[in-house]
Amino acid sequence: MSYHIVSIDAPDCSLSCKDGQLTCKSAEGNKTIPLEDVAAVIITSFSVSIHSKLLLEAARHGVGLVICENFKPASLVLPANRSTDTLLTKSQAYITAQLRKRLWQKTVEAKCRNQHSLAAELAPNDSRLEKLDRIARSVHPSKESECAKIFWRIYAEHVAETDDFRRGRHEGGPNPLLNYGYAVLLSTILQNLFAIGLDPTFGIFHVPREQSTPLAYDLMEPFRPCVDWRVAEWIHRHPDEKDWQVTREFRQWVTAFPLEKVDWFELTLDVRGVIEGVIRSFRQAVVTAQSGPYKPWTRTLTKWAG
């Protein structure tokens, strides 16, 4: 059964296939895995050579290769018989409005609860936490925006330590750090969408635009607090605002957050592994036309990792 998604990020490595084994050779040594157990290979390494035999064997086993530039998928190498999954594409294209609404409700609920969880970690004695928790657990139609208002006020006071912080793409303060972190998160979501076979152009809430990927924007929402926490930790270690720039050091720091451990049901996995599990559950929900299988991530037991 093909179920592993293999991520290749080692520098100056080579990929090949011999006797049915996917082999990665790098300075750290050789690692192998049976190709028949692989669903897709995500290549984020800046310098990797791929043997032509691997391309042929991957095609024979139905394995897709996602080749990234700056962590964002730039090319897909798919077997001819997997280039179009008719059932999945049809399921995505003709998803009902009711199912789309329910999937988005579950996504927003997870995001709001994660925002409350992080706010409670950042400011455990803040008087607004009770209201934030109440709204996060409600069925209020505007709960996403209401939770965001409270969350960012708490974040501003206890992280940015300012009264005039505003969350926005072109605003100052911690915003450049947050924007870069969200871009890394978006790339990680896209990698897994392509690897699992979902078309990111079929979203459930975000509006399609030219060259946009609305489904990736949809499914990244519950994971945004992971970036918010990572940035909060950076600011805690670099309190001088002149250090709140997207430097090489910060890029290295924030791009490691997908490897941080979080809880997902009864498992403790890295964020990247949880993203894969969530997207697989979303795929099952779409194919079965039921919202039940979809299990967006909600932080449960452990402290936020730094």
Rank of each mutant, 00 (worst) to 15 (best):
N175H: 08
A136N: 08
Q245C: 03
F250I: 06
F194E: 06
R137Q: 14
N192R: 15
D126V: 04
I150A: 05
S187T: 05
A120R: 14
L215V: 02
D126Y: 00
E241S: 11
D240V: 03
T107H: 06
D164E: 14
P141Q: 02
P214S: 05
S212M: 09
Y217G: 12
H116A: 13
K131P: 00
A148K: 06
E157V: 04
G203Q: 04
L198S: 08
P176A: 01
H238T: 02
T162V: 12
T201F: 07
P176S: 06
I196R: 11
H116T: 05
S127H: 09
A120L: 10
M220P: 10
F250T: 06
R134N: 09
P239S: 02
P176C: 02
D163P: 04
L185I: 07
V184C: 11
V246H: 07
N175M: 01
A148T: 04
A156Y: 01
R224F: 07
E210F: 15
A195G: 08
P174Y: 03
W244F: 04
P174G: 00
L178V: 09
P239H: 02
C147M: 07
N192H: 15
P208S: 13
G173N: 04
I235E: 01
P222T: 07
L185A: 06
D243S: 12
Q245W: 00
L186Y: 11
I150L: 15
R224G: 02
N175A: 06
I135S: 02
H116F: 15
T188D: 15
W244S: 00
N125K: 13
P208H: 13
T213Y: 15
Y182T: 04
F223L: 10
D126N: 13
A136P: 07
S127P: 02
P176M: 03
T162P: 00
F194S: 12
